[in-house]
């Protein structure tokens, strides 16, 4: 994983102040949405908790960080775009979908087809030897479950319960 390259305006203090002017703020929100997605993709991050520090939201070199209100606005904008979801009622934990669930489902199906795999536990997909080095490694469990459900609807896979949650698995149809 290489160093993430921040855009040049990441070092401009106004980037970290929520702009009161609508046109300017719209542009600012747009730029933040892009940056959040890129950053999360680069670091394979799926969750942003508003109550915890998140490295992207603070630039220590210019001593600026986003206010709670600003972070909430940027995440809400992502949610409006369908690129994020609140995971709790209080709107504190946010799932970042830098890749759509459908795309994950396609990706998973391609992987098992190419490797001739018919049976895998969720755990194996997330951190097994087979997926090591592929884009599937490190996938969020919640996202994975939803991707599998999409495949189930298409009749391409079936989920089965193991003796423990670790043993929950997926059976893929051969065609």
């Amino acid at each position: 994983m290489g160093e993430f390259s921040f855009p040049y305006f990441y070092n401009y203090p106004p980037y970290f102040t929520l702009q009161p002017m609508k046109d300017t703020r719209d542009k600012q929100i747009q730029l933040w949405k892009e940056l959040i997605l890129k950053y999360c993709k680069h670091h394979k991050l799926f969750l942003i908790d508003l109550e915890e520090e998140f490295a992207l939201f603070e630039n220590t070199s210019i001593q600026r960080k986003l206010t709670f209100e600003a972070r909430e606005q940027f995440l809400s904008a992502l949610i409006a775009d369908g690129r994020a979801e609140w995971l709790d009622k209080n709107h504190r934990k946010c799932l970042i979908l830098w890749r759509r669930i459908e795309d994950w489902a396609d990706s998973l199906l391609n992987f098992v087809r190419e490797n001739g795999i018919e049976l895998m536990t969720l755990e194996e997909i997330i951190s097994g030897d087979e997926t090591y080095g592929t884009e599937l490694a490190g996938l969020d469990r919640g996202v994975l479950v939803r991707a599998v459900k999409i495949l189930e609807q298409r009749g391409k896979a079936a989920m089965f319960k193991g003796s423990s949650t670790d043993d929950d698995g997926v059976k893929f149809s051969p065609n």
């Binding site: 203090p13 106004p14 102040t17 009161p20 002017m21 300017t24 600012q28 600026r64």
Partner: peptide
């Protein structure tokens, strides 16, 4: 600022 010429930093 309201004309979109400047933007602010509330630091």
């Amino acid at each position: 600022e309201s004309r979109g010429i400047l933007c602010r930093d509330d630091g």
